[in-house]
Design a protein around this nucleic acid. Sequence first.
DNA 1: CTTCGTGTAGAAAACGTTAACTATGCTGCC
DNA 2: GGCAGCATAGTTAACGTTTTCTACACGAAG
Lengths: 347, 347
Amino acid sequence: MKDVAAAAGVSATTVSRVLAGNYPVSASTRKRVLRAVQDLDFVINAQARALVGGSTRTVAFIVRDLVGPLFAYIGQGVEQQATAEGRVCLVCTHHGDADRELELIELMREQQAEAVVLVGGGLRTPEHLERMAQIARSLERVGSRLVLCGRPPIGPDAPATVVEYDNEGGAFAVTNYLLSLGHRRIAFVGAAEPDHTTTSARFDGFTRAHAAHGLTVDPGLVAGGTFDRESGYRQTKALLTRDTGMTAVVGITDIVASGVLAALHEAGLRIPEDISVAGYDDIPQSADLNPPLTTVHIPHEELGRSAVRLALHRDDYAQDQHLMLGTHVVIRKSTAPPSVPSALTGH
Amino acid sequence: MKDVAAAAGVSATTVSRVLAGNYPVSASTRKRVLRAVQDLDFVINAQARALVGGSTRTVAFIVRDLVGPLFAYIGQGVEQQATAEGRVCLVCTHHGDADRELELIELMREQQAEAVVLVGGGLRTPEHLERMAQIARSLERVGSRLVLCGRPPIGPDAPATVVEYDNEGGAFAVTNYLLSLGHRRIAFVGAAEPDHTTTSARFDGFTRAHAAHGLTVDPGLVAGGTFDRESGYRQTKALLTRDTGMTAVVGITDIVASGVLAALHEAGLRIPEDISVAGYDDIPQSADLNPPLTTVHIPHEELGRSAVRLALHRDDYAQDQHLMLGTHVVIRKSTAPPSVPSALTGH
DNA sequence: CTTCGTGTAGAAAACGTTAACTATGCTGCC
DNA sequence: GGCAGCATAGTTAACGTTTTCTACACGAAG
């Protein structure tokens, strides 16, 4: 910048003012400065500006993986809103490791991010919650803001913005839909990690729908596993060997459901004639699966956008730092009434 | 940091040294400092450190969209390698706007990113190439590095790291495969934007394979469109109304191919019995399409990792700043010999 | 007993920018 | 003509680190 100032025959302050445009500068001076900026191909140093200006104009988002379509869509929302608000985006992945997640938040605190958006579900043990609350307070102290996007609040005292969706309600709705079709033996694939907010909320909805129909969930129909396709495939294989009498399967995720579908196809079962399948998330490619998948829609992008919007304008939205967005079932071709409902009901 | 120093009864210099660990500090002093850091919940200011230390330890990657699975996988590679090298990742999207892409590079120059990775194909007009070369030089001047990931080099004089894959070769191979099966009327969907590197390379491979069989491409079988599913769907609809006699379709992208499949299904055509379909990219969900898609595999993640590795260690890999990774055809169920090959050959 | 080296600590300058303050030359008014 | 007020530009300090240089004490060697 000194070089530019010298080339234009002015002081550094004037250059700064021309670039920022927040102070009157005469037209001729402005022209000379701009000319020098061009000639020297000068760009401002964002670090130095942040150091004195107070804000880095940076939003961080921390996500399980870049490749999971759900995360990608939420991430897209975060990025778009951040860009729209003139911010730059930092991104990190933790691959499902809760401790790594905390480390990353710390790293983002060093980076002085204006907001740190945690995308997707997370661990919910008392210790982890306590550490998270502490981190939320640490962030607040440096003027940053913790944002939970797709995850329930940490606690009443922790300063955090929360934008979640009705996870449990969606699971209730899709399970209820299957039950209404006449299914009584519904498997749930992907129930491991009971301390994970997404897992527990979805399983709770599954259970509550059964209860609403006066039924209890058969533990033999509950399979564990992780959030990937491979897991859905393997767990379904295992279920099939056990002769559970299931007529429908709910995958905890569309990705998991695609593994479920693969295993069922391999076993020669027709979908939905022989067995119904439902997923969760409504990722775009669900419509292209074979058959197109019945699932629960989440307002992915809106989730990400709101997260950033609320966090950056938290003075304007002061009393509104907890948003719950709705979910709804999307019925496609992978679900139908069971073929011999009465015969199986009493199983 | 001054607070920590005061709390520990030492100077700021000493605190810095304890944290950096690059200077001998007595055990007792270290303990006191660490204690104060804990008590005050201190984190270093990355901006200030970057300002004096010279490096921001930041890698930027600029991508069309976060949600395209191809980009996501390459991005994943970038992020992983950057993290492995102790860097932090900045991400931006340009949604296919080439000018916006240039703006973003400029923005990343302000951010003093150590490397700026451009993911995916791009525009290739003379003017754009010239501006790009200029930007590459600008980046070099501030110690940063332009990295082209999945795009051919700008020119011999532009300082850039290039990690590309054999785009044209893959298109040749998959087209050649269809021709070998006996197809003679092969449509190409997604050929708009002829100045786009990805489009032109893939179309060139398509053309060259025809030439190798002594054939020329019928312009009536070449459909335009963009890189999304909707475009594949619409273009295929249009092709179907024109009675082209096509027995196979190559989608410029797996995403486009999924739209092609949808349109063909809707028209009541069986795949591959009535018509074959191939895609490009081998995104993971291609295996779950109906039917599983024959496509061209790209080493997505390796592409991203190499890009970062080469850029950050360009003194070690000085003479090796242009890498070309291989592609290969993945044969699945969406392709088969044409049902009445001889009848259509002479079309 | 001086001198030297070594281990540890601090002071001061520097990084590139902005903000608060100060200075200069005009214009216009009494 | 003197002076208030305004438009424009410059000076200086500050942001939070690291780095370079300097300082001090202590033990060992001559």
